[in-house]
Structure formats: C-alpha cells, structure tokens
C-alpha cells in the first residue's frame, strides 16, 4: 500500500524501530521470562543468604499425581478450575452489565444516565476487597446468595463498571456519520447498535477489553478472602501446611501467567483477524 521511501538510517535508528514497532506476543513472553528469571535469580541470591532449602520436587503432586495408573488432579489445579469457573461466570455477566450500563448511559433517559453514573463512580472509587466483604456479609444474605453467588456478584459489578467505560469509549469514538447513515436507512435503535455500531466499536476496544478480562482473572484471587477455594486460597493453604512458601507461590504465579499470556495471544490474533480496513 504505502510507497517505499528510501532513507538512509543509522543502525541504531533501525534497531530502535525494530524494538518499538515490532511487537509480537513472543516479544512479551520473552520479556516476561527474562523478568521472571531476574526475579528468581534475585530470590535465589537472597534465599541463599537466608539458607532457604528449595524443594521443587515436592511441588508436582499439588498439580497432578498418578495414583494406581489414574491421573489425579492436585490441589493447585483444582483451585485453578475454580478460578476458571468463577472468572468465566463473572466475565459473561460483567460483559452484560458493562454493555447495558454503557447503553443506558448513552441513552436519552435522564434517570438511567444518573443511575449508571452513580453505579460507575461508587464501584470505581471503592476497593474491590471491601466490595467483596460487603457482598458476602450484607447484600448476599439479603438477596439470598451464597458464597459463590456473592463473590460472582462482586466481581461482576466491579469489572462491569470498568467495562462500561470501555464500551462507552468505543461507541462514542465512532464517527457520527455512521449513526446518521443508519438512521437515514430507517433502521431501529436495536439494529443500529447490533449491525452497525457494536461490530465496529467492539473491534476498536478489543485491546482494553482484553486487559480488563485479564484484570478480572487476577482479581478473582481476591475471592479467597471469603474462603472460596480458588487457586490463590489453595496455594496459601498448601504453603502454610508445607512451608514450601516460595515454590508454591511461584508455581501459582506461573499458572496465572500462563492463562493471561494465552489470553493476550488470542486477543492479539483476534485483533488482526477482525481488523477493519480504513
């Protein structure tokens, strides 16, 4: 498309361009691994002084075990499945909450706009940990929600608030000519959003939305404070039982990392796949 312009560039300039313009998921992964290696090395140095006795060989049984020829899932992986479950449910609901809030905020309804604004500001300006406690001890019982339900509600409301801002930003970023063209064709509001506005907006907000999904997964670790045995709580219990503090927490961190990096990679390809030509 663009014409090649021959310009002499210094090797340093060339290198800089490569580094800053070329971003492949692998770049992130390599950086991350390097960083982790650095941290491990630092820990190693400090624990060498502490005289920490590394026992990595004790870790695998908390992931998988083979008992009598059968694969048995360990505590950490069980916790991971729970993290998947709670994140997955919260994610779907947060999506709905976020989109609804954004649409209400952009609607003509005065009360709707105020309500969505109040919701957003309340959630955004208080700590999630407080919200989880509040849901669990106060609102959950009122609504008849159990432990899981309360935690899901807390995560949904929290992430939904942030997602609504992302959705709103994506929607208002579209040129008003798109609305006008859709209106002039006689399309109703529902179809305008469904066929014209959202398909374009969602593609634009894919990067921040991915970030929010990753935040959701990481934030789900906080539900361990109401004794839901997710990955974080199970790691804490095992670490306390075995004194394998570093080994277990590193393992748990690595598991979170694998999931989130995998998500980033998927999002990266989605973004390329559904890119809108302009």
């Amino acid at each position: 498309m663009s014409e090649e312009i021959k310009v002499r560039v210094s090797p340093l300039h060339w290198l800089r361009q490569r580094i800053f313009l070329f971003r492949h998921p692998w770049t992130d992964i390599i950086e991350y691994v390097a960083l982790i290696a650095l941290i491990i090395w630092l820990m190693w140095m400090s624990t060498a002084r502490l005289g920490y006795y590394w026992q990595w060989f004790r870790v695998p049984k908390y992931l998988f075990q083979i008992k009598q020829g059968k694969l048995v899932v360990g505590q950490l992986i069980k916790g991971l499945f729970f993290t998947f479950r709670i994140s997955g449910v919260s994610l779907v609901l947060a999506f709905v909450a976020g989109l609804t809030t954004a649409l209400v905020r952009l609607s003509g309804s005065f009360m709707g706009r105020i309500l969505s604004r109040v919701y957003l500001e309340t959630i955004r300006n208080t700590p999630l940990i407080v919200q989880i406690y509040l849901m669990y001890f106060v609102i959950g019982p009122i609504l008849g929600l159990g432990r899981f339900g309360s935690a899901v509600l807390a995560l949904t409301l929290f992430e939904g608030a942030y997602m609504s801002e992302i959705f709103r930003a994506g929607i208002v970023s579209l040129h008003k000519g798109q609305w006008e063209a859709a209106h002039s064709l006689g399309l109703s509001g529902f179809y305008i959003y469904r066929d014209v506005i959202l398909p374009q907006a969602v593609r634009r907000i894919l990067p921040p939305l991915t970030g929010q999904v990753i935040t959701l997964i990481k934030n789900s670790a906080l539900v361990s404070i109401v004794s839901l045995s997710d990955l974080a709580l199970n790691a804490k219990i095992i670490a306390a039982d075995t004194f394998l503090t570093f080994e277990i927490w590193f393992t748990a961190a690595a598991i979170y990392l694998v999931i989130t990096v995998a998500l980033s990679t998927v999002a990266y390809y989605l973004e390329k796949r559904f890119k809108i030509l302009t």
Binding site: G177, E180, A181, A182, H183, G186
Partner: peptide, 15 residues
C-alpha cells in the same frame, strides 16, 4: 426514513 433515501458528502458507508 423508509420513504426517503439520503446520500452524504462523506459517503458514510459501513466500513
């Protein structure tokens, strides 16, 4: 709007 079609200066096609 069903009876009236409109063409814009900036086309406004759905990209």
């Amino acid at each position: 709007r069903k009876e009236v079609g409109m063409v814009f200066q900036s086309f406004n096609l759905f990209p």
